[in-house]
Each structure stands twice: as structure tokens, then as C-alpha cells.
């Protein structure tokens, strides 16, 4: 029973990792590759580590596995955000099929200032950042 759960989790994790790899190869621009890779792989590593925790079933190992999963889940989005933001900053192109870019013209790479947009749901007053 325990082995079956363990094997199923391991296979699920591997599936997501392979899908992430295929996505990194197949997707046409960097932003989609980041989407595919970081998430599929975070999920993949998460499942495999969970399988490891199930396999050993000791408190110490489970705690370390959970800590590693937490770390991966917290840092995955951060590194994805950092790398795609840096890429946008140095002008990595979007795919030609991209239908809309509302950030264009609002980002100044010299000063790193991002202007905000007036949108209808911004109606109430907010404290301005210094």
C-alpha cells in the first residue's frame, strides 16, 4: 500500500518534470518557457519529495522533505518573477502571437521606474509610495 502510494507520487512528479522539459523546448518565447518550466518542475519536485517522505515515514525525514517543498514553492515564483522581469528589462521579445502588451512604454530601463495605469477600479484614493 505504502509502496503503491510512493510509486504513484513518484510517477506523477516525473510526469510533470518531463512536461516541463517539453514545454521549455516547445514554447515560443521566454515568458511562456518560464511559466512552463518553473511551475511544472516545482510541482514535479514537490511530488517526488512527497513520495520520499512517504517512503521513509520518519519524523525527521518528513520534516526535511516538507521544508524543502516549502522552500521550492516559495522560491519558485520568486526566481520566475526575477528572471522574467530582468528579461523584460533587457528587451527580450514577446512571441509574435501575443495579443496585448499593457506594460509597453510604461517601463523605463534606465531608471527602473514603472508607471502605473489608470483603470476604472482604481477609484478610491491610495497612499502614494514615497
Amino acid at each position: 500500500m505504502q509502496d503503491a502510494v510512493c510509486a504513484a507520487l513518484m510517477i506523477a512528479g516525473t510526469f510533470f518534470m518531463v512536461v516541463g522539459g517539453v514545454g521549455v523546448i516547445r514554447f515560443p518565447d521566454l515568458y511562456m518557457r518560464v511559466s512552463s518550466s518553473t511551475k511544472a518542475s516545482t510541482l514535479g519536485a514537490g511530488f517526488i519529495l512527497l513520495s520520499l517522505a512517504f517512503h521513509f515515514n520518519e519524523l525527521g525525514t518528513t520534516m526535511r522533505a516538507v521544508a524543502t517543498i516549502t522552500f521550492l514553492v516559495v522560491t519558485g515564483p520568486v526566481s520566475a518573477h526575477l528572471i522574467s522581469r530582468a528579461a523584460y528589462g533587457i528587451g527580450v521579445r514577446l512571441w509574435e502571437g501575443t495579443i496585448r502588451d499593457e506594460l509597453r512604454g510604461r517601463y523605463n530601463p534606465d531608471t527602473n521606474v514603472v508607471e502605473s495605469v489608470e483603470l476604472e477600479s482604481n477609484e478610491d484614493e491610495r497612499p502614494q509610495a514615497p
Partner: peptide, 25 residues
């Protein structure tokens, strides 16, 4: 921003300097 990036297919790119707008790919 982190939860948006964690969801596959959406990626938070930037926050405007006055912190009123989040740009999402």
C-alpha cells in the same frame, strides 16, 4: 504576486512604482 506566478500560465512581471498596478503575463 507569488500565488499568481505559482498558477501555471500566469506570471507576475512588474509592480508599478506607486504600487497600484500589477502587470501579469
Amino acid at each position: 504576486a507569488n500565488l499568481i506566478t505559482l498558477t501555471p500560465g500566469t506570471l507576475s512581471l512588474e509592480v508599478s512604482n506607486d504600487r497600484r498596478v500589477l502587470f501579469i503575463h
